[in-house]
Design a protein around this nucleic acid. Sequence first.
DNA 1: CGGTAATCTAGAACAAGTTTCAGACTTGAT
DNA 2: ATCAAGTCTGAAACTTGTTCTAGATTACCG
Lengths: 230, 230
Amino acid sequence: MLADHVTGPGRRNNGTTGHMTAEAKAAEVAAADPASPPLTERQEARRRRILHASAQLASRGGFDAVQMREVAESSSVALGTLYRYFPSKVHLLVATMQDQLQHMHTTIRKRPPAGETPAERCAETLMRAFRALQREPHLADAMVRALTFADRSVSPEVDTVSRLTTAIILDAMGLADAPTPEQLSAVRVIEHTWHSALITWLSGRASIAQVKIDIEMVCRLIDLTSPETP
Amino acid sequence: MLADHVTGPGRRNNGTTGHMTAEAKAAEVAAADPASPPLTERQEARRRRILHASAQLASRGGFDAVQMREVAESSSVALGTLYRYFPSKVHLLVATMQDQLQHMHTTIRKRPPAGETPAERCAETLMRAFRALQREPHLADAMVRALTFADRSVSPEVDTVSRLTTAIILDAMGLADAPTPEQLSAVRVIEHTWHSALITWLSGRASIAQVKIDIEMVCRLIDLTSPETP
DNA sequence: CGGTAATCTAGAACAAGTTTCAGACTTGAT
DNA sequence: ATCAAGTCTGAAACTTGTTCTAGATTACCG
């Protein structure tokens, strides 16, 4: 319902109207999401190993520590294969973020924010996410830097991440359906602030306290967009 | 009063309490800002040539088109020298942004925004800046990507850019002095939104109209922080 | 002026992301 | 079981940011 658009191998479809991908029909496996190129079990496993290695290396030393050759070796995959699954380092890290976000979403759903107003719940959720990131600052660094450095060629993937984030926030607000355009706009602004505040924190230009203040400030916008529910 | 912290050569001061830099006292030249390492005329000229080449290349093809070897050649400077002036590509592009921002600041001061409320003036100013960026989207791409990709080693320079931006916004609001902490917080959030919205626009994930909406939305925060001035 | 330290130049060398290629292996279909 | 198409592997090559080196130049000091 939320997740889709999984990056996977088999992108180089040149125009020929050839047969469908060889492994195409195989094992429409466990994972609940894949839509575009259905993956073999072994492929699914490879993909998972790669993402795991990526997160692992990122947790060590952030963006720079995720070196494609190392990811390939750690996940027992040839370099060329790695690039077939994720066409660039940024693609890989954005996919990693997607992965982590999904975890976070289910985690948050298990214990939803308890605040009174939507604004409070929103701030609470974001702060919870922030604390999670603080536990793995290097991983956060790798993912966020990749996300904001991504160019047009990664737009679809970045967009997926963005939609996931939006979903989490709307969930938190308790407005998962029927948000007004104004509210969507406010949520977009909140996301902007969230990303940018993370960056200033990661680059050491803002303290944790500062980020908290900024988040709470921007969440006030929500009150501004729904004063008709007293 | 606003600008300082100019990147320049002569950084590799190892601990020795040696004599002051050879060219140190020379020509405390034209430019109004340099503080740390006063530059020779020829050095000032080199620095300018480099920044010009950087902006030029950036205007062509954005971040990727700014290749250090090319910048060096275009500005008739050896690669090593380029790196002495700007210790990395990101440093170079952030300095380029600083440069452009200064232009913009003086431009805006010549014809200040005319809106009624601070919020209106703020939105007006940002939209004017946005239109300026639209005229050189590739340059914008290079500068903004560099800014958000910058790691800790570039913090001082990024911070300078941030202060410049803050100054522009406060100027626009007419609150250049004595802003309350709340207002400063709001301005920080506005900057966050500004940067992040630019990125989504540059990577083709948001339209110009969308950016406008977001900017106007976030500027409403200003009203929220000063309802005591009717 | 002459000396000396710092700066600049040209070019090689190194690092990591990305591409390419030939050959081995899998997969699904006949 | 066999075949054709598509994948994966291993290794080399290419690109661009960054570092290093040796020698020429420049700037300041006495």
